[in-house]
Design a protein around this nucleic acid. Structure first.
Lengths: 128, 128
DNA sequence: CGGAATCCACGGTGATACTG
DNA sequence: CAGTATCACCGTGGATTCCG
């Protein structure tokens, strides 16, 4: 049971409603379709652009580029260019990027744990 | 330092890349602009529609309605209609909804902790 | 008060073609 | 191989109006 005071004590309250609050800014960033998937894909290995594209199912080349640029700009992903022919570019998480995996994991655990419950609720709702 | 094995041991890997994986489905759900803010707004109190609208800065009536319907469908928010005149409708989190606050809090803590770092990285990136 | 319905604009996204 | 550039779409979301 998660009590109100648990949440309060943890400082979750305050004003996460304001557009400029940190939580909202981060959620806006990772809220897009691909950012989280790319970060997770880089959890266990440094990957080349094309490898990344194969791993993250459904991402277009444009969106992968765009997502990687954003993550690089945020300092969460490092881009390494090996000046060979043909060019080899590799991506991996920075230390900051790696810390982000922790909260993402909490979210993933919640998802796995509650997906059945949520799905059941949806089906019941849709019958009415 | 978050190691690769930490992440691996926690079961974050697997294939969160597939479109039908739980993580992705949940992220798609809470990834929208308002869901998280509404859940957090309901963390400490049962609220009426109009109270909720005032608390969640910037949300339109349409999107608040839509967001609440979605959360109700997922079984995360409970809607209570008091048949008075005029009608009074109140919203609060279900037990499942309350558990979702925990991972959201982890994400918020990360945001607060890393916002400065991320912002600095962005500014440096933009200079180049 | 708490919505539902409608109309419409914008931007995120994908497909395609081209480049160093 | 790893992008950039361009175009076209369409779904999200805002503004407005109306209803029980």
């Amino acid at each position: 049971m998660v009590t109100i005071s648990d949440v309060r004590a943890a400082g979750l309250l305050g004003d996460p409603y304001r557009a400029d609050c940190p939580t909202r800014r981060i959620l806006d960033r990772i809220g897009d379709r691909w950012t989280v998937l790319v970060v997770v894909a880089l959890a266990d290995a440094e990957l080349r652009f094309s490898e990344l594209r194969r791993r993250v199912e459904g991402v277009s080349q444009k969106m992968l580029t765009q997502t990687l640029r954003g993550l690089e700009r945020d300092g969460l992903v490092r881009r390494t260019v090996h000046p060979e022919v043909p060019v080899r570019v590799e991506y991996d998480l920075t230390e900051a990027g790696r810390t982000l995996l922790v909260p993402l994991q909490a979210l993933q655990e919640w998802s796995v744990e509650h997906l059945g419950e949520v799905t059941a609720s949806q089906e019941e709702y849709d019958r009415a």
